[in-house]
Amino acid sequence: MGRLNVMKHALVPIHRLVPRDEEAEILGKLKASKGQLPKILKADPVLKQLIEEHGDIEKGRLIEIERVSMTAGVSKAYRLVVERE
């Protein structure tokens, strides 16, 4: 039995590793520095899965999360990868 891919679960929103060259544009759009973003632990199950797919993701990278929203249909959020709380 293969390991469960959490990202394929219906209740887990779509996570995407933001390529480095897109980061500046996104941060500019948000008018925020990386430190002001919500965080995601490197130990997060979704991140483990992403690491499996992309190779290691060092801290300081951005993750884009696309959620189904009751009010807006689809909403995008960004999180900063951190090692520990």
Binding site: Q36, S69, T71, A72, G73, A77
Partner: peptide, 16 residues
């Protein structure tokens, strides 16, 4: 945002 200027929600109520 909160007083530390960190983002709590990217767009108010997700639809602004």
């Amino acid at each position: 945002r909160n007083p530390a200027d960190t983002i709590i929600q990217f767009e108010y109520g997700e639809d602004g």
